[in-house]
Each structure stands twice: as structure tokens, then as C-alpha cells.
Computed example of a mutant assay.
Amino acid sequence: MMANMAKALNMALREEMERDPRVVILGEDVGKKGGVFLITEGLYEKFGPERVIDTPLNEGGIIGFALGMALAGLKPVAEIQFADFFWLGADELINHVAKIRYRSGGNFKAPLVVRMPYGAGVKSGLYHSQSPEAYLVHTPGLVVVAPSTPYNAKGLLKAAIRSDDPVVFLEPKALYRAPREEVPEEDYVVPLGKARIARGGDDVTLVTYGAMLPRCLEAAEKAKASVEVVDLQTLNPMDYETVIKSVSKTGRLVVVHDAPKTGGLGAEVAAIVAEKALHALTAPVVRVAGPDVPQAPVAHDDVYVPTVERILRAIDKVMAYS
């Protein structure tokens, strides 16, 4: 069926709850309201309050409850209304969820998913538009995922729910109701830890994920050079092999993300390429990212994130280097 990302995520949740009675959903307003972005719409009516649980406004409690449920044998999917709020549950997520398997010598595990709408682009303001992926990727023990299309959003979320590892599922809210695509109604998963080539090319590699994929594809279409676009999909563990293979072919790398530049995921991609494929580079790596300032207020939301024009300038820059 044709679906946008919001619908695809709802399909994934519904199918996994039908497939596995251990799957439960919890979070603020996820029940009768269906969540702030309506991702859980209709699930309360189908599965009832014992499996779709409205919680108090307490992110630490939500993640802590999810951990307890997971340790007891359930498969909880916790929703944090906006990724900006995960800090209120950071102790539970970083110090307990991420470490429980290591801390217990493998005796316990935390098979849970924490869904977080992230990023700018919908004019939701200073405290509802941040992209915290670099903080999360820096935490050993967490799998971090960022889908970019309805098809891979459904497949990645289903894979995340079935995983025995804790998964932070970063949903680009700017793409929730972006153009639709065909999403199979039958069961399928998109493997965690694997990047994909979203567009083939020979001259420049563009590495991106989540909300920036459509802009990178548009820039690649408009560029004078032949541009290959790599969609990371899973940010941790990152599929470095696909990135290295692409850069080894093109010799040029541009990394695009909407989080601030300093310490962002682009720096990690650049470092890995420098370590493993420096001989292949014919130009310095260029990062196109958000500025090193707090998230822009609503009136300037559109200029905070990388634009197609900025990406095109980066492509021209690496092509012009000699």
C-alpha cells in the first residue's frame, strides 16, 4: 500500500503487536490520543490499556519502566515525545539500559526500543527540534537507528523490536508526512547495522541519514558531477564497509547531517575514512551540518538545517580540489 512514514511506523507497531504478545507500548499520550504525532493511533482501541500504556510526564520513569518490563520478559516500545526530552531519562538509558548486559556478564539483557522524534524542519521551536544522535552513538551498548523513507522505517522498526539489544529509534519528524511510497503490507525487516546505496554515482560520495536524505538526493540530481548517496540507516553500529567501498570508488566524500557540526556524526565518518581509505581520497572531506549554535527559533527553522544549495556548494568544492 502507499504510505507515508507515520503510517509505515504505525503498521510496524501493529504488526509486531499482533505477531508477538510480549510487545507493549508505553509513553505520554500514546493511548487514546495516539501520540503527539499520531504514530500509535488506533493501537489502544485494538490492543487495550494493558498493552498500550499512557504514562505520567516522566521520561526517566518511561525508560525505567521499559527496562523493568524488558528484564521481566516483555518487549517494550517506549515513546519519548520529542528527542530533546531524552535527557530527563538519560541516567536510565545511558547508565542502566545500555550497560545491563555488560554489567551482568550477559545474564540480563534489555530488548527494548525507545522511539524519539528528532530534528528540525517542522517549526517546533528551540526545545523540540534538536538532533542528539552524537550523544547516543557515543554510548556503548545502544543501537541507534535513523530511517529516511517509509519503506525502511517500517522494516527497521520491526527489526528493532525483534532485536535482543536496546535500540534508540530516531524518527525524522520532518519526514513523517512527506511524500508516500509503496510499503508492503506483508512481513519484512530491514537489517540493523547495514547502510544502503540510495543513489549510485562515480565522482562524489554523499553520506547522510534520516531527514537529510531527500535533500541529498535532490542535490545529487542537480549536481554537475555523478554523486553516490549512502544512507547510513543505522548510526551505531555504523556500516563502515559500505562507506569505505563507496569512497574508494569516488575518491571524494561529503557528509551531511542537521545536528551541529562540532563533534557530530560527520566527524566520525570522516575519521574512519581517514583511517581506512586515506589513500583513496583525492580531496579533503567536507562536512555540511547545522551551525554550532542552539537550535534556531521557529522563524529561522528553515535556515538552520543544511539546504540543497549548501550541499551543492560542498559537492562543487570537492570536485574543484586539485
Rank of each mutant, 00 (worst) to 15 (best):
A3H: 05
Y127N: 00
T139E: 06
V247P: 11
N10E: 08
R196F: 14
S163A: 15
G155W: 11
Y127D: 00
L43Y: 04
E79A: 02
L281K: 05
R180P: 13
A98C: 03
T55D: 04
L217E: 00
E171A: 11
R196T: 15
S322R: 14
P184K: 08
A277M: 11
P284I: 08
N10D: 07
A280E: 07
L265K: 02
N152F: 14
P140E: 06
H96A: 08
K158S: 11
E268D: 12
L43A: 03
V144K: 00
T282E: 15
D292C: 11
A72F: 05
A98H: 02
K154W: 14
R14Y: 13
P191V: 12
L253E: 06
D187I: 14
R19G: 12
G42K: 03
K222C: 04
F65H: 00
W87L: 12
V23T: 10
E181D: 13
M212P: 07
P132Y: 03
Q81L: 13
H300V: 15
G60L: 08
S226V: 12
T205Y: 09
E41Q: 14
Q295T: 14
C216A: 09
I63T: 01
Q233G: 01
I39L: 14
V168F: 14
G266E: 05
Q81K: 01
Q295A: 11
E181R: 07
K33D: 08
K173H: 13
P56Y: 00
G48F: 11
A146K: 05
L136M: 07
D164H: 12
L265I: 15
H300T: 09
E28L: 09
P111N: 00
A223M: 10
A223R: 06
D20H: 07
L170R: 04
P49T: 00
R252G: 13
A134Q: 02
K33V: 15
V30A: 05
V286M: 08
G42V: 08
Q81P: 08
L170D: 05
P56V: 05
K123R: 13
L175P: 10
G68F: 10
E92Q: 15
V273D: 06
Q295S: 13
G35F: 13
K46H: 07
K75A: 08
G266W: 10
V256C: 06
E133N: 03
S226W: 11
G64E: 02
R196I: 15
A6K: 10
D316C: 07
V168M: 12
P166M: 10
V36K: 01
F108Q: 02
V298G: 02
R180W: 15
A66F: 06
E185A: 10
V243S: 06
